[in-house]
Amino acid sequence: MPVPPQRDPDLTRAALTHWLGTRSDEIGAVELGPVTVPKEAGFSGEILLFDAEWTESGVRRRQALAVRVAPTGHRVLPEDFWDDQVRLLKLLGGTGLPVPKVLWDEPSGEYLGAPFLVMERVDGQVPADLPSYHRQGWLADLPPGDRAAVWNGGVDALAAVHRLDVREIGAGFLDRPEFGPTGSGQLLRRFTHHLDFYGVADDNTTAAAALDWLRAHVPDDTGPVSLLWGDARIGNIVYAGTRPVALLDWEMAALGPAEADLAWYLHMDRHLSEGIGAPRLAGLPGRAETVARWEERVGRTARDLPFHEVFAAYRFCVVTARVARLLGESGILPPGTDFPLHRNATALLATVLEENGPAVSSRGRGPALQRPRTA
């Protein structure tokens, strides 16, 4: 679901044309093609695509570019993570991970009303969230063996993120010691610190029960600290055929146990199948096979997955409450609408809680414990 249109495409094109011409005294004769928004773009970030031509040092250059604009009016996430995100993307460009190359970044809001960065555009296909890739699209059109290759390529890319040495790449700035020691407890406290921003309803007893459970089951975290992609899912991967060529959307990056990413990867796929009442695509490896492959790639056993799977389900439920609020504020949905995304996320959270132990706190069960309905 893309961010609602926030700018005039012709004015944006003129602003970017002028801005690109200021990058160097050697750059001139800048021409930009139409500025478009990718249909796969998520609600948390504004992406602009265009082709650019310019003369640099007497040589005519042409390149497909992507601009990511810092969120302003439609903020799904509470923290201003922009500077850290730009810094991280630049660091990752030297690690061998398939991330888009950052060409330039603009720290001011002078040109587009917010900071932005310009990256090389990576050609390929992205599994769509809406409609779910389990229902239709290029992934559904592949034979089962190729679907498995797509999924496993994502698992391998995720494991490559987790094999990075946080100190060696200089990613320690992602730590948030104000929320406690690096680990599961820090991630939970950092997230719940912003519950008022997300706006989950007081009568959502499923979310309340999940938070009680999480606070009672925080792991000791004896494992290593890893770089966390944050929004790790195949819907944030550009594929060339079945091969990942770009890992996108690092605005939720953090430090902590790598299992938090693995659980998110599993849960987001589950939401787009079971969570919306859609059959999961044949050929996609299941949970056990996925975990085993990840363990083989990172060289250790997964720890505390039940906690991280409940945490993933809880976070997604809370984030969808924020998305529902933004849709109401933007006029896309009437305020108070029963939004299927949030309703289904809450129902799947209830299921995950039931699978992992006592799900209901003293607050009891409420109407939020419905089963998922087709979106």
Rank of each mutant, 00 (worst) to 15 (best):
P2K: 14
P2D: 11
P4G: 06
L11G: 12
L11V: 14
R13T: 06
L20K: 04
G21F: 09
G21T: 00
R23H: 11
R23T: 11
S24F: 06
E26V: 13
G28L: 01
A29S: 15
V30Q: 00
G33R: 09
P34L: 06
V35R: 03
T36W: 12
V37I: 10
V37S: 08
E40R: 14
S44D: 05
L48C: 04
L49E: 09
A52T: 00
T55N: 12
S57E: 14
R60D: 14
R61L: 09
A64C: 03
A64D: 07
L65A: 10
R75A: 05
R75W: 07
R75L: 04
E79W: 09
V86I: 14
R87L: 12
L89T: 13
L89V: 11
L89G: 14
L92G: 14
V99F: 01
W104C: 01
Y111S: 14
L112N: 02
A114M: 02
F116H: 07
F116I: 08
L117M: 15
L117V: 12
M119P: 12
M119Y: 08
D123V: 14
G124D: 08
V126F: 01
V126E: 06
V126I: 08
D129S: 13
D129H: 10
L130T: 13
R135L: 14
G137N: 00
G137K: 01
L139T: 05
D141Q: 06
P143M: 03
P144D: 03
G145E: 02
R147V: 03
A148I: 03
A148Q: 01
V166W: 01
R176A: 01
R176Y: 03
Q186M: 11
R189G: 00
R190Y: 03
R190A: 04
T192V: 13
T192R: 11
H194L: 01
D196C: 05
G199C: 07
D202A: 11
L211W: 02
L211D: 08
W213F: 00
V218C: 00
G223H: 02
S226W: 03
L227R: 10
G230R: 03
N236F: 10
V238L: 11
A240Y: 09
T242H: 04
P244V: 07
L247G: 05
E251H: 10
M252L: 15
G256Q: 01
E259I: 01
D261F: 01
L262M: 02
A263Q: 05
L266K: 00
H267L: 10
H267D: 08
S273R: 06
G275M: 04
G275I: 00
A282P: 10
P285A: 06
G286Q: 08
E289G: 13
E295T: 07
E295N: 06
E296M: 12
A302D: 04
R303H: 11
D304S: 05
D304T: 00
A312D: 02
A313I: 04
V319C: 10
T320L: 10
T320C: 09
A321S: 05
A321H: 06
R322N: 05
A324R: 13
R325G: 03
L327A: 08
P335N: 04
D338L: 14
R343I: 12
N344A: 02
T346H: 09
L349V: 03
P358I: 07
A359P: 06
V360H: 10
V360W: 10
S361M: 08
G364Y: 13
P367N: 10
P367I: 09
P372Y: 07
R373Y: 13
A375L: 15
